[in-house]
């Protein structure tokens, strides 16, 4: 069986949505005027391949097309062009078979049964997925070890806190041991401790190398902690797809380092960086093309008493901010795509 039989392949996927021009809304003055429909591009010719053992962060602004892509990969939407295969199956045409292969969370939306104890919900899912009781029990025990579910799983879901419910939902998505996971903002609204529990579980999954995992989130700390590969989607197109470390290269020219000296430095001349601005002991420098962080730091430390260096623009959050800003400047007319 090839690698893609266990993973996800998205080929040339395009999806548009019909929107109505609100400027043409019905009014009493022009009651017969028809609203004009437009097609908003949510995804445009998207190619993506995720192998088993990969944990990717799917990033993008609100409305960039991430959720649309997730919905297409989970078989909720049918693309207008292109094809999708999850573990070798068409997720839309083969929805029920494909469901055995994937686990899904959608933000704070719950798949638990509101009035029943959480453990009863897990039992219903066992019946829906046709899981053998021993497999179900073993998996639940394993999930309980990490997520500490047993402390509250006999409580009706309606009485659970958000953190408890999200942990239950994550367990519900993993109960049938799917090889493919789609996690759409799984830690949104959670406190630090619960986030840590969720991250620990996902890290365990990632380290097995047995799963293809797609995580969408706006929490960059989560992305940096979990994802080795990052895919950035903007206005329906993939604008970056590569290792987490390579993301920094995308916005290289826009990195600056904030250097704090022990005392205000005299006129600063560096071989590896240009001075952008300075105020008292604090100077902002920009690395010259070809110079990396280590070279700039080494030159600074060699000749000056440096108190601290802050590498601005190198954290994933900074890079994305730059990237989003750049694509917005490049294609202002394309703004307002559909999807989510």
């Amino acid at each position: 069986m090839s690698g893609t039989d266990h993973g996800i392949t998205v080929t040339g996927v395009t999806k548009t949505f019909r929107t109505w021009d609100t400027a043409d809304a019905w009014s009493i003055r022009r009651p017969l005027r028809r609203r004009r429909a437009r097609r908003a591009v949510a995804l445009a010719d998207v190619d993506l391949r995720i192998e088993r053992g990969e944990f990717i962060g799917l990033l993008g602004q609100n409305g960039a097309g991430k959720s649309t892509l997730i919905k297409i990969m989970t078989g909720l939407l049918l693309p207008e062009e292109g094809s999708v295969r999850v573990c070798g199956l068409d997720p839309y045409a083969d929805r029920e078979r494909n469901a055995h292969n994937m686990g899904v969370t959608f933000g704070q939306r719950t798949q638990m049964w509101w009035d029943l104890p959480a453990r009863d919900s897990f039992g219903i899912l066992r019946d829906i997925y046709g899981l053998p009781p021993t497999v179900w029990r073993d998996t639940l025990t394993q999930l309980d070890d990490v997520l500490a579910l047993s402390a509250f799983w006999d409580t009706p879901v309606r009485f659970l806190s958000l953190g408890q419910r999200v942990r239950c939902d994550l367990a519900a998505a993993l109960l049938h041991r799917p090889p493919v996971l789609f996690l759409d903002e799984p830690t949104i609204g959670l406190d630090v401790l619960v986030k840590d529990q969720v991250r620990e579980l996902l890290t365990r999954y990632a380290t097995t190398g047995d799963h293809a995992i797609v995580l969408t989130t706006h929490d960059m700390a989560e992305v940096e902690a979990l994802c080795r590969r990052i895919v950035v989607i903007d206005r329906g197109r993939i604008v970056h797809d590569g290792p987490r470390e390579a993301l920094a290269d995308v916005t290289d020219a826009e990195h600056t380092y904030l250097v704090e000296f022990e005392t205000p430095p005299p006129a600063l001349h560096l071989l590896t960086a240009d001075v952008v601005s300075g105020e008292g002991p604090t100077v902002r420098v920009r690395p010259r093309p070809g110079a990396d962080r280590a070279q700039v730091t080494a030159e600074l430390l060699a000749a000056h008493a440096v108190r601290s260096v802050v590498y601005e623009g190198t954290r994933a959050e900074d890079i994305l901010r730059t990237l989003y800003g750049r694509t917005a400047r490049q294609s202002p007319a394309a703004a307002g795509g559909g999807g989510g």
Binding site: H6, R97, H100, I124, D127, I128, Y129, G130, L131, P132, V135, D138, T139, Q142, L143, L174, H176, R177, P178, P179, R204, Y205, T208, D210, H211
Partner: peptide, 18 residues
């Protein structure tokens, strides 16, 4: 067990319990 993706189930969903 967490690390091992499940084989496709060999039994039909027992949805009647719903």
């Amino acid at each position: 067990p967490l690390a091992r993706p499940a084989a496709p189930p060999d039994r039909a969903p027992r949805a009647h319990r719903l």
